[in-house]
Design a protein around this nucleic acid. Structure first.
Length: 662
RNA sequence: GCCUGGGUAGCUCAGCCGGCAGAGCAGCUCAUUCGUAAUGAGCAGGUCAGGGGUUCGAUUCCCCUCCCAGGCUCCA
């Protein structure tokens, strides 16, 4: 038998006997690696450890504590989940069970229409641990399509996957099947699953997992197809990694804007109003006002005009714009008024701005014309889709529409992108990437030429911005492509924020024109853009980004002054009055309770600065500062010094507690 | 819209097999005057989401509606 040579990721070569597997390679390198190994990549493709290696291949051993390793063990855990479910519910049909971010899921259809309940998760988990204890090897086999169909004759979803791949109808299922054969993995004679693999060598290699929840999921993600029962789980390479993940989930829950909105008395969703309809309380209203005022001032500086439009309009407007044709499902049903007219709540502001443009003849000298409005719109979201402030039925967009010439378009987009990123940075977001959404298949209006030009321009501007650009093929709106700015928050989640959308269509539909210097009518280009997206959603993001520690400049209450004893209250009010002169949002809590209790309350309310004043301060005109997130309070600071520091922090939009690690 | 789970005092939650509705915090009153995360006592607070049904009796069991959560679908 001859030898083969394979390359390791570091470029070094190893000699193995022909037919040797990645597991043999791992053993040659070290016993510990062989023990850890879960799978391998051969020339970049993920495969089983036991598969013979081709000569000259570049081979890397996949170990648990890596992205690929976790993917493999999550996928294998999903198989064990399916096996456990078929043990507990004989006759259960299992559909697909991939690894996903942080875990895995598997979709099932139980016999006789049975459904999982949350209580079943414990039983299933226990059965999974039994299977893992049985140390079952994952064994790969390959079958022809016909044999595969026979094998899974009583598993309709598997049959559909195999026939779909055989007939080339569903290329995405190629992940379940490879080449002209179907592959299966069985970890016991009693359980075989259609799967491309790879899998861990044995079920005993699994175990640091937890089933999280049961949910409904449509087969193939299609509303019109049967709804399956999906079980979600999380799985990790070690007990510690699992525990860390669960802790992180708890941390994320603590900064959930819905919870903080309640705790900090910012907003609520009275059930009397219906789903997705929020009211802002005084504190939330203050934060929102500051956000909006700052945005307005920036827009003024950037040359925007301010406009306003009503919340309802005759159907005609949205017939002309095309919204009724495309998005009637997402609009509130019309009100029939007594003259037979139908009126709609507006789902978008753009048609109104077009009408403002059209209110009189426009000259090229007026372009670019930038119209801004905090426009409140209403969208009839499906009842199951609403979510806190991030997905609501009534929302306010920081919406603007820019009318410009084709020649101005590029420059306008460049300065717009700079403007967007500057503004977001002022709110404390610093990590971005851009996404370019292109023509949606089947539902776009407009010519190929228009789309191609729009997409090319946006791509050029996005590339020049120097940020990472991700393509979202087919993700554009029906009327034009868009760039969206994705921002990363303090715990690493990304959120789609600003969108900049090109639109060749609306100006046409409304027959919009301006007179150019050639004395002829020309069609303007329209750019739709929102920076916050929705004020509500942006506020939710900020609350979570800052974990409720709203930066001082936006904080509803910036300073609270506490006298140590009630004979210090008068001095406390003097301090507050002085700060009010600077425009600071300050309150005084009189000394009816022990100082510790009042400090605790202010801390829980996340007031940025608690000022404590006692005998020493009254005597020497000073104050004590207990700053949010600081380890120790500071004593004997002069009022002037505090005013200086505070105004510096507010005007710079600072958020020192982030750097203090609060 | 669909699936699963939930809705008990302002908030967080307990309440077993159907038998007079509970706690902590918050609120109010009184006392306490205190230097950096909870002073004490007392009081008040409920259509157990809403409606219907079963039952001698329903917060509890069943049905419908509303609202919430996690998913699926959707997101101009």
């Amino acid at each position: 038998m001859s030898d083969i040579e394979v390359l390791l990721p570091d470029g070094s070569a190893r000699t193995l006997s022909e037919g040797a597997s990645a597991l043999d390679l791992a053993s040659q390198i070290g016993a510990r690696l062989a023990k850890d190994a879960l799978a391998a990549t051969v020339n970049g493709d993920l495969t089983d450890l036991t598969k013979p290696l081709p000569a000259g291949a570049t081979v890397a051993i996949v170990t648990p504590a890596s992205d690929l390793g976790r993917e493999v063990l999550r996928h294998s855990t999903a198989h064990v989940l399916a096996q456990a479910v078929t043990r507990l519910w004989p006759g259960a049909h299992y559909a697909i069970g991939p690894a996903i971010r942080d875990g895995f899921y598997y979709d099932f259809s139980l016999p006789n229409g049975a459904r999982f309940s949350d209580d079943d998760l414990g039983r299933i988990e226990a059965e999974m641990r039994v299977i893992m204890g049985e140390n079952q090897p994952f064994v790969r086999e390959e079958f022809s399509y016909d044999d595969g169909l026979a094998l899974f004759a009583d598993q309709p979803f598997k049959v559909e996957i195999i026939t779909g791949v055989r007939d080339g109808a569903t290329p995405e299922d190629a992940s379940e099947v490879s080449g002209s054969v179907v592959s299966t993995y069985s970890n016991s004679p009693a359980f075989k699953d259609l799967c491309r693999g790879p899998h861990v060598p044995s079920t005993a290699r699994l175990g640091h997992f937890k089933l999280m929840r049961v949910a409904g999921a449509y087969w193939r993600g299609d509303e019109k197809r049967p709804q399956l029962q999906r079980i979600y789980g999380t799985a990790w390479e070690s007990k510690d990694a699992l525990a860390a993940h669960l802790t992180q989930l708890e941390e994320a829950e603590k900064r959930d804007h819905r919870r903080l909105g309640q705790e900090l008395d910012l907003f609520s969703f009275p059930s009397e109003l219906g789903p997705g309809l929020a009211v802002f309380h005084p504190k939330g209203g203050t934060m929102r006002r500051v956000m909006e005022e700052y945005s307005r001032s920036r827009h003024v500086a950037a040359g925007y005009e301010f406009v306003n439009s009503p919340h309802i309009t005759k159907a005609e407007l949205f017939e002309t714009s095309g919204h009724l044709q495309w998005f009637a499902d997402g609009m509130y049903p019309p009100m029939d008024l007594d003259d037979g007219q139908q009126y709609y709540l507006k789902p978008m502001n753009c048609p109104f701005h077009v009408l403002i443009f059209k209110a009189r003849q426009r000259s090229y000298r007026e372009l670019p014309l930038r119209m801004f409005e905090f426009g409140t719109v209403y969208r009839y979201e499906k009842s199951g889709a609403v979510h806190g402030l991030t997905r609501v039925r009534g929302l306010t967009q920081d919406d603007a529409h820019i009318f410009c010439t084709r020649e101005q378009m590029r420059d306008e987009l460049v300065s717009l992108l700079t403007f967007v990123l500057d503004l977001l940075r002022d709110f404390g977001l610093n990590e971005f990437y851009l996404e370019l959404s292109t023509r949606p298949a089947g539902k776009a209006v407009g010519t190929d030429e228009e789309w191609n030009e729009a997409e090319a321009t946006l791509a050029e501007v996005a590339t020049n911005a120097g940020l990472e650009l991700v393509m979202d093929h087919g993700g554009g709106a029906f009327y034009g492509p868009k760039i969206s700015v994705q921002a990363k928050d303090a715990i690493g989640r990304t959120h789609q924020l600003s969108t900049i959308q090109l639109d060749f269509q609306l100006p046409q539909r409304f027959d919009t024109s301006y007179i150019a210097n050639d004395n002829a009518r020309h069609r303007p280009i329209m750019i739709h853009r929102a920076l916050f997206g929705s004020v509500e959603r942006f506020m939710a993001l900020l609350i979570e980004h800052y974990a409720g520690n709203i930066p001082t400049w936006m904080s509803p209450e910036q300073v609270r002054v506490l006298g140590v004893r009630d004979d210090h209250d008068a001095y406390a009010y003097d301090i507050a009055a002085a700060l009010k002169q600077d425009g600071v949002r300050v309150s005084v809590e009189a000394a009816n309770e022990p100082l510790g209790a009042r400090i605790r309350r202010a801390k829980l309310e996340k007031v940025p600065y608690i000022l404590v004043v006692g005998d020493d301060d009254v005597a020497s005109g000073t104050l004590g500062i207990n700053a949010r997130g600081a380890n120790d309070p500071e004593r004997g600071v002069t009022l002037e010094e505090f005013r200086r520091r505070l105004s510096e922090e507010i005007s710079s939009h600072g958020s020192p507690e982030l750097t203090r690690g609060a």
